[in-house]
Amino acid sequence: MEHFLRKALPSEAEIIWNILQQAIERRRKDGSRQWQDGYPNLEVVKMDISSGKGYVLEREGKIAAYAALVFNDEPAYDEIEGNWLTNGDFLVIHRVAVSDDFLGKGIAVSLFKLLEDFAKEHHVFSIKVDTNFDNLAMLHILEKLNYQYCGEVYFRGGARKAFEKVLS
């Protein structure tokens, strides 16, 4: 099944927002507090896209997943309770969401593998990511893909589990 990563287009903001809303609802049903406070929202998606940070995984001509990608810029990561594995360049992955239409098809794992390739293509060999302590789906993916727990970071007043993977 062919799938690929590409920059999101401004005309796709509503589609991406719908996918994020599906993920927000899944988190709510799972009992997670992640994304239950009005963030992210459509304006965040539009800012991701306009700043060149919004990326989609396209499969079968449809958007299957979304992520915001940022190189070397996450102020919350400067204040970690714990220690990162590396101190050099890194890629931050935020706002990962998979469309309901593609659940159970390994899309999140495929997305992370494409993002690892994306980082290496940009000569960056560290990926940093954080998630809520109660986002069991993301915690499982990070464990499966050998991301290492590094400590806690704080966003909008809440603690988040921080992970890093050093790429070879």
Rank of each mutant, 00 (worst) to 15 (best):
D100W: 07
K128W: 04
F125D: 06
L111Q: 12
S51N: 15
L139A: 06
H140Y: 11
A119R: 01
S51L: 13
G88D: 11
L111P: 02
I93Y: 01
F71H: 04
S50Q: 14
D89E: 11
N72V: 06
I141A: 11
I63P: 07
K53I: 08
D130A: 07
D130L: 08
A108S: 14
K113F: 09
A137W: 13
V92E: 01
K113E: 13
L115Y: 04
D130W: 11
E121T: 14
H123M: 15
E79L: 12
V70C: 08
D101A: 11
G52T: 02
N41R: 03
A64V: 08
I49R: 02
K128Y: 03
S50C: 11
T131W: 09
G88F: 12
V109L: 15
L103T: 12
E60A: 15
V45I: 14
V56A: 03
Y66T: 10
T86C: 07
M47S: 15
N41H: 06
A68D: 01
M138R: 10
I63Y: 07
L136K: 13
D134M: 06
D101V: 00
I141Y: 02
L91D: 06
V96A: 12
L57T: 04
I93Q: 00
I80S: 07
G106W: 06
V44H: 03
V129L: 12
G61P: 04
K120P: 07
I63S: 05
E58I: 05
F133L: 14
